[in-house]
């Protein structure tokens, strides 16, 4: 019911985006010394989110499944980077920066969710 509220839906998409990115970053760091491994990352949220609603199906009944507004982790792209002699493109420093960025993204999404929820609670007349 609450995911009708666009702010909450966007925040939950951002949470999903951040956690999928976190999974990719964990995979990159775990494979930091695997020969031939290529680092992966997701596209920026602002770009992938905005491009999504155009493909969304129109729901004429509440029972219709609505397309999720964010594509999911299958859109992983090669993060680039200079390959080491063994073909590995993971740079630990870059991954640390990425991890900090993911953390910020995740915290933002969580803060927005939390304040939206407290707004809903306030409107219901409950003490937060």
């Amino acid at each position: 019911m609450f995911d009708r509220i666009d702010t909450l839906r966007m925040a939950s998409s951002l949470t999903a985006h951040a956690s999928a990115r976190q999974g990719l970053a964990a995979r990159n760091v775990a494979n930091a010394d695997t020969p031939g491994f290529r680092a992966h990352d997701l596209g920026r949220f602002a770009e992938t989110y905005r491009s999504a609603p155009a493909t969304e199906l129109r729901a004429t009944r509440p029972g219709h499944a609505s397309g999720i507004s964010w594509g999911g982790p299958d859109r992983a792209v090669d993060a680039g980077g200079e390959p080491a002699p063994n073909g590995n493109t993971v740079a630990i420093e870059d991954e640390m920066i990425r991890a900090a960025d993911i953390r910020r993204e995740f915290d933002l999404a969580l803060t927005v969710t939390r304040s939206s929820l407290s707004m809903i609670r306030t409107s219901l007349g409950r003490r937060v």
């Binding site: 956690s19 930091a32 630990i92 991890a99």
Partner: peptide, 19 residues
């Protein structure tokens, strides 16, 4: 590399508990 993995581990754990 071990240290980097540990940091990612810690962050993932914190994100899970924040959720």
């Amino acid at each position: 590399s071990y240290e980097a993995n540990l940091r990612i581990f810690e962050q993932a754990r914190q994100m899970g508990s924040a959720l």
